[in-house]
Amino acid sequence: MSTINTIIIDGMAFTLPLFIMAIGGIYSERSGVTNLALEGLSGMGAFVGALAAYILTQQFGATSQVPYYLSFVFAVIGGALFALVHALICIRCKANQVISGVVINILAEAVTIFLVKTINRGVFGKPSDKIDLGASIRFTVPGISKIPVLGAFFTRVYPFEVIIILIAVVVWYLLYKTPLGMHIRACGDNPHAVDAAGMDVARIRYFAVMMSGALSGIAGMAFAYSISAKFSSGFFVGYGYLSIAALIFGNWTILPTLGACLVFGMAKSAGYQLVMYLGYPSAYQDLVMILPYVLTLLLLIFLSKHNHAPRALGEVYDKSKR
């Protein structure tokens, strides 16, 4: 397999989860609720999904594909319910949304790691700090995958990549082509107009924030499968923040955000391949790991001038204020 193919294959497996998480962020932020909690939401989703997969695997046997797909359903539920906490703090309690996001992240990390250890010891009877997932199956589309370079997009694909693309299309349609999507976007720019039109701003925002949790849950589960095939404290490495950076470059719109995610994903996997290619010792991986983060900063420096955040982003909606 050529190096370029490997870069594309690994790059897509990283890009797509990042992308779906960023779409979640777009939903929340377009509705006017700042969401720095993506990291924690994806972590909670991955934890719930991983736990479900582990239990279901014992039920269905290791060869069954049922736990794999059901784990994503549970991750969606876990992420969405946990996002409700963020929504309640921001909308019901009118707290500072940035602080709430960080609190959610701290809470998610503390709770999941504690629960993993406690459940492993107490329920499964083996002290361990991780939930093992079986390695995800991967498939190659016959025929098309033989095309040079482009074929790589159809080689050794994780099933979740297909799920993510399908969902991305649906939520794109929902946000831009339906009345509900318009209401969500209006809530972020002019909530008073939405209110005047007879819509409930709070309810729309609750929906949007829970949507971000659901989508982050999918991303978290995908990361858990693709990167380490387990859920442990090592899950929290800041990809949630990376996806926030991606949606900021994407100017809070879905398609340009995909572009930003592609840049991150390809830079990361290309960096890895570079170290392998040059034959440097593994310590040099550390230098490569900073690539997406440095890229984020540089892109922010060059692009942030042209960015327009939703106008009511981060503001608590107050009916009496005009």
Binding site: G238, Y241, I244, A245, D286, I290, V294, L300, S304
Partner: peptide, 18 residues
């Protein structure tokens, strides 16, 4: 550059760490 300090500090956290 109007870069949100939350995003930039977190990027620096990871950069410094690595």
């Amino acid at each position: 550059f109007n870069i949100n300090e939350v995003v930039s500090t977190i990027m620096f956290n990871y950069i410094v760490s690595y």
